[in-house]
């Protein structure tokens, strides 16, 4: 059951959305991490998200509602593979379908988004076995701890070459992500607490075109460094069902134009996620989720606010020799 608990929690982490800091109708850069428990060798995930942008917080933290309909649908494929007890890696390939209802403007666009690869090094697993005076014992106190690493490739279409906003499916620049993930079971087989913290660094991008038009004066832009956080409570209803609640958000520094930091352009927002997970079998998991921002002044700055409906369907290949990882 211990494996199951870890499994459940990782499943939640797998489907946890992270706010993308981008203009409405931008895609890419979502660090959905496909994570495997010790008794799983690999996974294949089909994900779907409907992200409906309700408005934006301005630089004075005032909430401004959208007058028009703006949303994204993001089907995605992801996969992960466990190499050994400590190391696993995954890849996420999103596809963006953008919708903007605004008179006189193109309303539909779609394309492959920014591809994310990620990995993690697991320092500790909960309930690990150890020998003491010749006896095999279970470690009841050590939490799960892993270092996470991610990298986003600008494979999507950015505002540099897109014809209009609905064609944007990526940020157009490389992004790296470094973080830690901690999990501690509070009540065995019932309740877990988790924390995910990460630092995101975006690399500079030079614009020689903008929306396909040549610029007379190219310029560089660099997104500010970003700190992501999420605190999660995971409750196991029974062997087949679990529910999770997460509070998360991000803080991002000012962006730079031509190496000059632009004042008062820092961003932040908070979000809540509710997720339910159902396990029809040992190797299949179905997990719907709902994420929302609080659409009122003071709950964000320079960031879009949305609500998101998501669904993840995961197929696992079991690790037939998990004891080799002990």
């Amino acid at each position: 059951m211990r494996k199951k608990i870890i499994f459940v929690f990782f499943i939640f982490v797998l489907c946890k959305p992270v706010l993308v800091s981008a203009q409405v109708c931008c895609g890419g850069g979502v660090y959905d991490v496909a994570v495997l428990s010790l008794n799983k060798r690999a996974l294949f995930n089909f994900g779907y998200k409907f992200d409906n942008f309700m408005g934006v917080w301005d630089y004075e933290k005032d909430w401004r509602e959208n007058n028009n309909t703006v949303y994204q649908m993001i089907p995605s494929l992801s996969s992960a593979y466990r190499f050994n007890k400590q190391i696993q890696a995954g890849v996420l390939i999103p596809f963006y379908i953008n919708k903007l209802e605004s008179p006189g403007l193109p309303s539909n666009g779609a394309g492959i988004g920014d591809i994310v690869i990620n990995g993690r090094y697991e320092f500790f697993h909960e309930y690990g076995l150890y020998k003491e005076k010749g006896k095999l014992k279970r470690d009841e106190s050590t939490p799960y701890l892993a270092a996470t690493l991610g990298f986003t490739f600008p494979s999507g279409t950015s505002d540099e070459s897109a014809e209009s906003e609905v064609d944007i499916t990526g940020k157009g620049y490389f992004t790296s992500n470094l973080g830690i993930s901690v999990i501690k079971t509070v009540f065995k087989d019932k309740l877990q607490l988790g924390a995910d913290l990460s630092w995101q660094h975006s690399f500079e991008k030079t614009y020689e075109k903008y929306y396909g038009e040549e610029l007379s004066q190219p310029y560089t832009r660099q997104q500010g460094d970003r700190f992501n956080y999420a605190l999660t409570v995971n409750y196991l209803l029974n062997y087949w069902h679990s529910a999770s609640f997460s509070f998360g958000g991000f803080l991002m520094n000012n962006y730079k134009l031509d190496n000059s930091e632009q004042e008062n352009t820092n961003e932040n927002a908070v979000n809540f996620v509710i997720s339910y997970t159902y396990y029809p079998s040992e190797v299949i998991r179905i997990s719907p989720l709902f994420k929302w921002n609080i659409f009122s002044s003071g709950m964000g700055k320079n960031a879009p606010g949305s609500y998101l409906l998501g669904l993840n369907i995961v197929y696992y290949i079991e690790n037939l020799e998990p004891d080799n990882f002990r």
Binding site: D58, G104, D159, Q262, T265, N302
Partner: peptide, 11 residues
């Protein structure tokens, strides 16, 4: 140009 977000627009 939207200075607080650092992007422009098309069309």
């Amino acid at each position: 140009w939207m200075p607080s977000h650092g992007h422009g627009s098309s069309s």
